[in-house]
Design a protein around this nucleic acid. Structure first.
Lengths: 224, 224
DNA sequence: CCGCAATACTCACACTGTCCAGATTGCCGA
DNA sequence: TCGGCAATCTGGACAGTGTGAGTATTGCGG
């Protein structure tokens, strides 16, 4: 929120357009999802000519990418807050504590997905230009990728580490564990948003609990 | 493929436009995903004026919905073929057979998702207009919903029934089982397509196997 | 054989992303 | 202090999109 002139700005130059565009993009993505971040609309919100954006982003896709990055950071922050707020009493048993922590991380993920579906979809690259799975190495399009910012999977890794520390998970199985956990939770989120939007919150909570039960059971079962 | 005149048709009336539009929609959705099904382009393929589609579909979204329905049927058929072709030898132990069958169903799901990502995305409603999870009952927009056609989840239900029959799964747990299974497999698919497109086929196969291991372990574990 | 309702077409409008050329300015060196 | 330069923003334009209103063309039932 650097400037907020409703129409024409006082100064010809905006000062910090790039950031303002991203912020406005987050605003429209919050309600409406990724396809709501429209170049002309975003420029209109910021109070700038549509083509001004091209000075900071080569294309609309680049803007969306930046917005998605920020949405991902927002998601990590929201998960942090959720975990901080809703995990006061932990079981004394360290194994049980680790399990409930993993469950709590999953709940945090789903909480954000259901609370901020627009940002969640935006963060997860809802409408990727690159359809298909050509196996291209993505050629590291990283525009000076600041990969040090908090990312949602960090919480998951910490939870799995705790499981390993508690002896519930073999260290060698941590890779399969991260895939299984992420897939279960992400799949649940997508299903709730896209496939089963008519579920009541109670039904959703039940499905979450049951799926998380299956997950931790499968992870901590005596491996073959 | 009712008609294929490159330009203007011989007859003024097309004969069976609605079906032709859906077929053309499937064609463009196959490569390019749901956002590639563009009204004017589809009409162009069929060889008809853009607005002719409005005689059969109230809006582009309705066309997409029809295309998505057909893509879902295609997915079910593809899973059928996959399961028929790639499951010759089953373990003698019925419990083990049921488990491998569930795994095979999951593999069939993922095989279609990775083989036909455009159709998969289209079938799963990649770009829903209704963002958010307002809990609306969807008001049953069913345009004479022919719900008797094969749907992908049918295979999953059959696999779980076999697990129940083999004594590996308590009948009361079947609901949680369907959610957990579906979430795991669907989440894996979305992750491969959207989040981890750079994985090699080998890495993907490994992740699939490991995730399915965790799933069946969690489902067939001694319940708490 | 004729009228009519279904079907497809034409024209038009408000949008969108993006290119190109020009206007405006902060800033840095002389 | 001041002139110019490069960064930044603006305006107009073009191709393409979904969709509405009115018009032409037909197959078919009476």
């Amino acid at each position: 929120m650097v400037e907020k002139r409703p129409r024409t700005r006082a100064t010809y130059h905006h000062g910090d357009l790039r950031a303002a565009l991203i912020t406005a993009g987050i605003g429209v993505a919050r309600e409406g999802g990724p396809q709501a971040v429209v170049l002309r609309e975003v420029a209109r919100i910021v109070g700038v000519a549509p083509n001004s954006a091209y000075g900071h982003f080569a294309t609309l896709t680049a803007l969306k990418k930046a917005v998605a990055d920020r949405a991902l950071g927002d998601m990590a922050a929201a998960m942090d807050a959720y975990l901080e707020a809703a995990a006061p009493d932990e079981p004394a048993d360290p194994a049980e504590a680790a399990k409930t922590y993993l469950r709590e991380v999953g709940r945090a993920y789903l909480h954000f997905a259901l609370t901020e579906p627009g940002l969640f979809r935006t963060a997860m690259g809802g409408d990727p230009t690159g359809i298909g799975v050509p196996g291209v190495p993505e050629e590291a399009t990283g525009t000076d990728h600041d990969d040090d910012r908090p990312k949602p999977e960090f919480h998951l890794l910490r939870a799995l580490d705790r499981l390993v520390g508690a002896g519930c998970l073999h260290p060698a199985d941590t890779n399969r564990a991260v895939m299984a956990s992420w897939a279960a939770v992400h799949g649940l989120a997508i299903m709730f948003l896209d496939l089963l939007p008519y579920l009541t919150p109670e039904e959703r909570d039940a499905a979450v609990s049951e799926t998380l039960d299956v997950l931790v059971a499968g992870l901590t079962c005596p491996r073959p």
